[in-house]
């Protein structure tokens, strides 16, 4: 599988990273060289192998469904680049 320049633009859009047009070609080359190296995985027979879901064999812990934290909106917005009255401020999204 090979990544062309259109794919770089599409993936960058999905990743919400603005990529300058002059960098698209370089990025395509870099991604291809990494993906090409990764392709050696196709040599491995994975027939009947379960994909790993947990690296240590433990049961997922559960806790009681009760509130243990919260009610601190000021802490939550403390580091926001723009906030007002404990709300995040963003550019207008609805006309």
């Amino acid at each position: 599988m090979s990544v062309d320049q259109a794919t770089v633009r599409r993936v960058a859009k999905l990743a919400r990273i603005k990529v300058k047009e002059e960098n698209v070609e370089r990025l395509a080359g870099e991604l291809n060289s990494i993906l090409h190296w990764i392709e050696q995985l196709n040599e491995v027979n994975v027939e009947g192998v379960e994909p790993m879901t947990s690296v240590v064999t433990v049961k997922m812990k559960k806790r009681a469904d009760v509130v243990t934290d919260g009610s601190n909106p000021h802490d939550v917005v403390e580091n926001a680049p723009a906030a007002e009255d404990d709300y995040f401020l963003v550019p207008k999204v609805i006309e």
């Binding site: 993936v11 960058a12 990025l27 990494i34 994909p51 790993m52």
Partner: peptide, 30 residues
């Protein structure tokens, strides 16, 4: 670079070929 690679391998049509295969290989390594 890593975000773009990660987004690519998780994108529609590539997930099984890359991510699921890698997780199977992880099972074999373990």
């Amino acid at each position: 670079r890593r975000i773009l690679i990660g987004t690519y391998v998780l994108s529609a049509g590539y997930y099984d070929a890359y991510y699921v295969r890698a997780q199977k290989i992880r099972t074999l390594i373990k």
